[in-house]
Write a protein that binds this DNA or RNA. Structure first.
Lengths: 331, 331
DNA sequence: TTGAAAGCGCTACCAT
DNA sequence: ATGGTAGCGCTTTCAA
């Protein structure tokens, strides 16, 4: 069934039907109602492809992340999807995994689907790397990057100030006398390096020297973390506090240290990052830095709609984090 | 830029360009290469809307769930998206929330986008309720339902055998002497009632009587659960074991009971459901029933592709769960 | 206020 | 193997 059928039954032209469909003002109330009635009784649904072909948009946004099953990305995608919908957009989800070639491939697939924009969540693209590809995309549609920084025309970055958050908390720990702060992280994304820099700068600014044994890169796996901590302790190094780039790392560290006889937080306070559900579920519950993912994502969508409406939009917006106090560290 | 531009530059007709685009065999190797070269140098991207208008498909599937930020749905959506992509489909994500009117609205939006099928994850629709709406949709596109049961033409249900899983574990607990098994749940979805029935039937089949005080419906909130358990204990009822419809409920119950001086699992063993990351993160780690969400979702996608290729597909596929043993209950 | 008709960019059928 | 052309269902301009 199409616009012609409706026009026939209603005794008007397809132009009029189209006008009704698009809420055009130039239709008499009587005609409009007649057309609407016919649509209703026939159960007509406009064809979005034909519409898209004319308007060159189907109001769809491509949302890319490495993996929605990760709690952080899941929350982000959830908020993004809801905000987009409130603005009349659908979200095409694309979980790319870590491989950079796959990412490019998937971006191209989304481009072929003629999405109106791309939102990259926690892109693992680092500055200076592979910008050519993003550049090509940004030349045709806006690209919003959440927790990633790329300086190119038509790209907009929404960042949580992870550098500052880590910096502040390391400084705080140092000032409370915890000078051997162990830092755990797992990936070298933009976000990852921001955090790591926060740690390093804080250590320096506290007048301490960076001990590379206290900076451990380790996968999100309990056994790997147990092993890493065993090795550390074997070297005779006992961390005075632990800070992790993600809650799960902090929790696994807590489990490992508890197993080795340390009491958390009495012996070793621990701080996680993301303030995820995991933080609430662990025992003792995990003090964690909240990266304000909800804010980040709604800001991203607002930014996007502003771009669409031709407003002057800043290239970079930074949102501060906040510490959520629970049992593993009380400031 | 369109197919005409390519045809011009390559000195062929648009028909030939279209053939190259669609990998038709009736093109000489020489012509094909020439056209491909032109496409490459001009950076041509075919217009999916025009293509969709002709073929009446853009190879997109609507994926509905209440909320992707929930760990279970996140995992499900992740697997579904990946499987769909392997079959050349994109996933339009739609988080509906719990409101049934919203669900209907969103389903209609997806229909308007002319998706090729709908996958409902953990629908809260109950049998006999609101089938008319699904029926209408299923009359135009296939509807796959994960952990929900609706018997209608062109609907296909992929279920995890949650009834049996709960049943078996309650029976197991009873046989080990734990006769006052507390059952915690939070929602009355199809899935929810399957589990509850499993509990009730098991209690009966063990020759015990159902004690309604031991069946508690409570939100996924630590304080609510603390309060519910306090009330239970005040009545003088101490559960001999706890079974929960979701890991998070089990974990909060564990926290509450630990706080009240009980030792888990020595005093009270606990079993969760979903085998989520939370189970691994809690202390002690949570024994949990794995609902095989990965299997469920890949089966759903396979089922869908079979429907598309016109194969004879069963209306209902049930996949059994399995108990993953950790520290809170060792059978 | 309404209608006629020209696209939008592609696919697929029919010729050649 | 290639080209011509009629749609696909809609929006939008121009006329009336």
């Amino acid at each position: 069934m199409n616009i012609y059928d409706i026009a026939d039954k209603a005794g008007v032209s397809i132009a009029t039907v189209s006008r009704v469909l698009n809420n055009s003002t130039n239709v008499s109330q009587k005609t409009r109602q007649k057309v609407l009635d016919v649509m209703e009784t026939l159960g007509y649904t406009p064809n979005a492809f034909a519409r898209g072909l004319n308007l060159n948009t189907m109001k769809m946004i491509g949302v890319l992340c490495t993996d929605v099953s990760d709690v952080f990305y899941a929350k982000a995608v959830s908020v993004i999807e809801n905000s987009l919908r409130q603005h009349g957009f659908d979200a095409i989800l694309c979980c790319t995994g870590d491989n950079i070639e796959d990412k490019k491939k998937y971006m191209n697939l989304l481009l072929e689907k003629r999405v109106d924009a791309l939102i990259l969540v926690g892109s693992t693209f680092k500055e200076k790397l592979d910008n050519s590809h993003i550049e090509k995309i940004a030349s045709s549609i806006p690209v919003i990057i959440i927790n990633g920084l790329i300086t190119l025309p038509n790209t907009y970055c929404i960042l949580s100030d992870e550098f500052q958050a880590i910096y502040d908390n390391v400084v705080r720990l140092c000032h409370k006398g915890y000078e051997n702060v162990l830092y755990l992280y797992d990936v070298d994304t933009f976000s990852g390096s921001q955090k790591l820099n926060g740690y390093k700068n804080a250590i320096k600014d506290c007048g301490l020297t960076i001990n590379n044994d206290l900076i451990i890169k380790v996968p999100k796996d309990l056994n790997d973390i147990k092993e890493a901590l065993s090795n550390l302790l074997k070297k005779g190094i006992v961390p005075s506090a632990v800070l992790a780039s993600e809650d799960i790392l902090a929790i696994f560290a807590m489990k490992s240290l508890t197993e080795k006889g340390y009491t958390i937080p009495k012996d070793i306070p621990i701080i996680g990052f993301n303030n995820s559900l995991l933080a609430e579920c662990s025992t003792p519950s995990l003090t964690s830095i909240d990266n304000m993912v909800g804010n980040l994502c709604t800001t991203a969508v607002t930014t996007l709609t502003n771009v669409f409406s031709g407003e002057d939009v800043p290239h970079k917006i930074t949102i501060s984090c906040k510490l959520v106090e629970r049992d593993t560290f009380i400031p």
